[in-house]
Design a protein around this nucleic acid. Structure first.
Length: 305
DNA sequence: CGCATTTGACCTGCGC
DNA sequence: GCGCAGGTCAAATGCG
């Protein structure tokens, strides 16, 4: 765990208190020097931030790996004890799973109960590493659309009203790549109509479209696990629902299983979104950014003349 | 006109 | 074997 010990050495006390009042462009040349200094300092801080983010992602990967191994062992032990039921999914099933994944971006996995209830055809796919996960999205109760914002493009191919839920269930296939066979089912929660339950089957064999669009900057620090997250996650055809969670990696990982890796992009996306949100909400950061930009513009104006 | 969505028909698996 | 329920298909429809 060298990374953790090294992380403790990183100075996290960022000095972002750059006074905008100091950035007076109508001052003499001494001010220009001050501006250059400020700019250099902001650059240094930016570099430091980048390094910290890289470190954080590294630590996250290590933790994730450890959790995978741990859950894998646990599930192996459980599977030895539980014999799979022969019956297909019963109405009680959804409730059981829902109660098991309280609170946000949580999911069940194909290794436990949900997999056992898949129909024969799906079970055959499961043998070829079908991954099933479930994600909850908070949305407006009045909103009747079954669209969730997860960064991928989906093509709707069916809708059904199921017995155990008055709300219709929508069926989607991944439209990002013809070869991608990932499917998604979206249905409102029985208990809370404002919560959309998205069930993902399979694993994307291509990167997230929105990630391709914005493959610069912060995204380069995000680990790619087959499907990468995006800070924007701006799917053109989806906009309404947001994952019902705050970024809480430990909580999310608690219910994570080795076969539900498909949801990591959700968590990672949220992580990046939260980081961006925190930064933009920080008055010190915005002031520093404004100061840096102003200073830079002034510097350019001076050199142009 | 092309593409995405809708929706009824059809298919498949499971329980009785 | 029959009926039920979930899942999928594909023609019809709507929209930009």
């Amino acid at each position: 765990m060298d990374q953790y010990s090294s992380s403790s050495l990183v100075d996290t006390s960022l000095d972002l208190t750059i006074g905008v009042t100091r950035m007076r462009v109508d001052e003499d040349s001494t001010n220009t020097n001050a501006l250059v200094d400020e700019l250099n300092r902001v650059r240094a801080e930016n570099k430091k931030l980048s390094e910290m983010l890289t470190l954080m992602c590294d630590n996250y990967n290590v933790l994730r790996k450890q959790l995978m191994e741990y859950v894998n062992k646990s599930n192996m032990a459980e599977r030895d004890q539980i014999s799979p039921p022969k019956k297909r999914k019963s109405p009680v099933r959804d409730d059981a799973i829902s109660s098991a994944v309280i609170g946000g971006v949580s999911e069940s996995s194909s290794t436990d109960q949900s997999d056992q209830y898949l129909c024969k055809k799906q079970r055959e796919k499961t043998v070829v590493k079908e991954k099933v996960s479930r994600v909850y999205y908070k949305t407006e109760a009045s909103d009747t659309t079954l669209v969730v914002k997860d960064g991928y493009q989906w093509r709707k191919y069916g809708q059904k009203v199921t017995r155990d839920n008055p709300s219709p269930r929508a069926y989607f296939k991944c439209a990002c790549a013809p070869s991608c066979s990932v499917k998604k089912k979206v249905q409102r929660s029985v208990e809370d109509q404002s919560v959309l339950v998205a069930t993902y089957e399979g694993e994307h064999n291509h990167p997230m479209p929105s990630q391709i669009d914005s493959n610069n900057g912060l995204n380069r620090y995000v680990p790619l696990g087959g499907a990468a997250p995006s800070a924007a996650a701006a799917n053109s055809s989806s906009s309404l629902a947001e994952p019902v969670t705050t970024v809480d990696l430990t909580e999310s990982k608690k219910v994570m299983s080795p076969t539900s890796r498909i949801d990591f992009p959700e968590v990672q996306k949220l992580l990046v979104e939260q980081m961006a949100s925190s930064l933009t909400k920080d008055p010190n950061f915005t002031a520093a950014l404004a100061a840096a930009v102003t200073g830079r513009l002034y510097q350019q104006n001076q050199t142009d003349k």
